[in-house]
Write a protein that binds this DNA or RNA. Structure first.
Length: 788
DNA sequence: TTATGGCGATTTTTT
DNA sequence: ATCGCCATAA
């Protein structure tokens, strides 16, 4: 038995635990040891949030609640105590002794950690496995969406879905909505599908059903229309055995509320729940988490109110703001020490964010030292801006830096083009994350649609997508009729087309429909049979549909590329098939929830380009932030709305805090965007950075006499040669000569009347009603017009 | 039923 | 600048 008293052992145990987590700072360690009850960790950017999460889970699994506990294991021997003392001196400690120190350590499979991105979940998982070995595998570390999908797959039948329901993405949603609006005779002009969908999405985020939505709409005409669309949309999804992203969360909550037994099962299953990026949760996610945690209340949420940037998509910052209110007695721990950036970068970030009123308040500091000044460069235009940035990169790489040290983070994907062109030209290896993703490419979506239909023949939207792709003479009309018949007869679409000849309305297309149906049935049988692998099925689909030939015929230019993509999907399938228990429906789910950022591999030595949103959670030694102009960042839609400006400012904060060593902010005097040139003022966020932190430069000096070309003394010259950038002609074009109302004479079109004259770039676009050939649009400079 | 061309509208951000 | 829609023609 023990020769030392209990208090001594407790003290020793604490020392052991502290030693075990000694790589963390005091605040971080506090969070690690606060295992019981609700805990809010306000983790500033770069404050080691993931480290805390990983270590906290490790603590829960190794020691349980031992740190604050009075419990002492009676089996602890003197020899064990000696081992502990040696551990503190720096020797190893065996797991069996650790276990004797523990008080209610939790099995790994009873711990749940929820993140937003697959990448964050994967990283968490990797680090947990790294720290805990095999045991780490059993922790539920996944995204909201995949956790919910997993829960729903088990019990979706209770909600009227099959276990292999399809997950609809944005494109599928759009197609459904278009069909809905058409059915309801609502013009897309008055109700753009996008807008309706986003309204519905917002409704689902806040757990408002069509019924609730309708009652809230009251007498508002527009809202009533949306309510009808919402109802019809939801019905279509249900008929198709499909859920959209929002449904995954909302239906899980619905399931929990409707089936207390299921809720209780999960409440009992999870001892500890952790939620990352809590500031980005929406109401449905909030509800999901709260239901799960309601019984044990061992809920730890980690987040940073200053980094809440997804309000537009339903995230409510209130979730994090009200946590202490929702969970009385919650511990709050602030992590303000930053391990990522220089003090200058943090000062800039702190200064910018301090202009926001809605925040918990927190100020980052670092031991990393001041670092370099923040550079702000005002370029002439967007091409010049990209050129200056490439030059800095090339200089840096010449001086020993890696391409992968650099990241360009912009406000919107459209900005990537300049950089892509410029980097390609300058031979800078780069990757663009986001934009058109692999799984959004047409050919990939086609193939996935085939697989989806095989997996779930009730999927109307994807059925419609492939039924005439490649072309097999089945136009909208026959397909519509077949669907109508299915509805009237009460059979499935597949059943109807399998005996299409029985329906006179289908006579013309009957044979084709039947052939198609038989082909799909064959695929379905292949999928159900154990004799074929998924990839064999996939190859069969490609062969049977002559899809490669179709690609060749459809667009010979891109056929090569697209064929490669189709093959790439095949290797993805094969890779997935290596997993145990791989199923088609599992594969489809995985890719449905996959995004581009998940694919970002920090290993490759290339410059990375992505939106600021995608960059959240990432860090880079050198960061470029182009387009800091009013109207770009902050964006146009947002300038006049103070609440949205705060969100943009948080975005700016996220952007700045991605940088470890150097930060280059820039803007352009004039910028070609969305097809026309704009001259924007510098972003207000630049003015919010203290002047003493800034080093301002500009491409063009001001005191150049009017009418004289600026002196291209440096690098500009060679670049502007190769028609990437054409200097404006110094002699003004005679474009202004023509105005609306003038009668003009054209060499071939004859006489006409100018209807409109729109100045564009260096020219004027004229719309002219000619007497003989009708109305044409012509550029004044090229039209060779004479005035009458 | 499919192919084409012109026209207009449309631009955050993403699981 | 690009995309998607629509009307028109084959």
């Amino acid at each position: 038995m023990q020769s030392i008293d209990k208090n001594e052992i407790k003290k020793l145990r604490r020392l052991v635990m502290e030693k075990d987590f000694s790589r963390m700072n005091d605040m971080q360690r506090q969070a690690v040891f606060a295992t019981e009850g609700p805990l809010l960790v306000l983790a500033g950017a770069g404050s080691g949030k993931t480290t805390v999460l990983v270590n906290r889970i490790a603590n829960i699994i190794r020691y349980g609640r031992a740190y604050d506990s009075d419990f002492i294991n009676a089996n602890l021997t003197d020899a064990d105590i000696e081992d502990c003392k040696r551990f503190i001196e720096g020797e190893e400690l065996s797991d069996s002794v650790r276990f004797l120190l523990a008080d209610y350590p939790s099995p790994a499979w009873k711990v749940m950690a929820i993140t937003f991105t697959n990448k964050a979940a994967g990283e968490l998982k990797d680090r947990l496995i790294n720290m805990l070995g095999e045991e780490g595998e059993q922790i539920w570390a996944s995204t909201f969406h995949s956790s919910c999908a997993r829960i729903l797959r088990r019990d979706a039948e209770r909600l009227g879905y099959t276990p292999h329901f399809t997950i609809y993405d944005a494109d599928d949603q759009r197609r459904v909505m278009k069909a809905v609006l058409r059915d309801l005779d609502i013009s897309e002009k008055t109700m753009p599908p996008r807008a309706v969908l986003s309204e519905i999405s917002r409704a689902k985020d806040s757990l408002r059903t069509p019924d609730i939505y309708e009652s809230e709409a009251a007498e508002d005409f527009r809202l009533k229309m949306i309510a009808r669309a919402y109802r019809a949309y939801q019905r279509k999804l249900e008929e198709s055995d499909a859920m959209d992203f929002d449904d995954l969360i909302a239906n899980t909550v619905k399931l929990f509320k409707a089936c207390p037994d299921i809720l209780e099962y999960y409440q009992d299953r999870f001892n500890y729940i952790m939620v990352d990026e809590y500031q980005d949760t929406n109401h449905a996610q909030y509800e999901f988490v709260n239901l799960l945690a309601a019984k044990k209340k061992n809920l730890c949420v980690v987040g940073d109110d200053d980094q809440s940037i997804y309000k537009f998509r339903g995230a409510t910052i209130e979730n994090i703001m009200n946590f202490e209110h929702d969970y009385p007695g919650a511990q709050v721990i602030r992590l303000e020490q930053n391990y990522r950036s220089t003090q200058n970068i943090l000062d800039a970030a702190n200064a910018v964010i301090s202009n926001n009123t809605e925040r918990k308040g927190k100020s980052l500091w670092t031991g990393n030292g001041e670092g370099k000044m923040i550079s702000y460069h005002l370029a002439e235009n967007e091409v010049d801006e990209a050129d200056k940035i490439s030059r800095i990169i090339l200089d840096g790489v010449g001086g020993g830096a890696k391409f992968s040290d650099y990241a360009v983070l912009y406000r919107m994907n459209a900005q990537s083009q300049n950089f892509e062109r410029m980097f390609a030209k300058q031979g800078i290896p780069h990757r663009i994350i986001g934009g058109t993703r692999f799984y959004e490419r047409q050919e990939i979506r086609d193939m996935i649609a085939y697989l989806s239909v095989v997996n779930n023949p009730a999927d109307e939207i994807r059925m419609r997508r492939i039924i005439n792709r490649p072309k097999r003479g089945l136009g909208d009309k026959s397909v519509d009729t077949a669907f109508q018949i299915a509805e009237q007869v009460g059979e499935t679409f597949m059943e109807v087309i399998s005996h299409a000849e029985d329906f006179p309305a289908l006579s013309r297309a009957a044979a084709k429909l039947k052939a198609f149906g038989e082909m799909i049935s064959r695929f379905i049988r292949m999928n159900e049979s154990d004799d074929f692998t998924m990839n064999e099925l996939y190859q069969e689909i490609i062969d049977e549909t002559d899809y490669i030939e179709f690609l060749q015929a459809d667009d010979p230019e891109r056929a090569q590329d697209r064929t490669e993509n189709v093959e790439e999907l095949s290797s993805n399938i094969q890779r997935y098939e290596e997993n145990e228990g791989a199923t088609l429906s599992g594969f489809l789910e995985e890719i449905a929830l996959f995004t581009d950022i998940d694919n970002y591999d920090e290993g490759a030595d290339t410059v990375v380009l992505m939106t600021v949103h995608s960059a959240k959670g990432l860090e880079f030694p050198v960061v470029f932030l182009p387009g800091w102009e009013e109207g770009v960042f902050p964006g146009t839609a947002v300038i006049y709305n103070p609440a949205e400006v705060e969100e943009e400012r948080r975005l700016a904060y996220v952007a700045i805090t991605r940088a470890m060593k150097e930060l280059f902010v820039s803007g352009a005097e004039s910028r070609m965007i969305f097809g026309s040139t704009a001259r924007n003022r510098a972003s207000r966020f630049i003015d919010e950075i203290p002047e003493e932190l800034l080093e301002r430069t500009r491409s063009r000096e001001y005191n150049i006499r009017k009418g004289v070309m600026p002196d291209f003394s440096s690098s500009e010259h060679e670049n502007y040669q190769n028609n990437i950038y054409k200097p404006k002609p110094s002699v003004p074009a005679p474009a202004g000569t023509f105005k609306a109302g003038d009668t003009v004479e054209h060499k071939t079109f004859g006489t006409g009347l100018i209807l409109t004259a729109a100045p564009m770039a260096n020219d004027t676009l004229l719309e002219i009603a000619f007497d003989k050939v009708g109305t044409k649009k012509l550029f004044a400079n090229f039209a060779r017009l004479t005035k009458n």
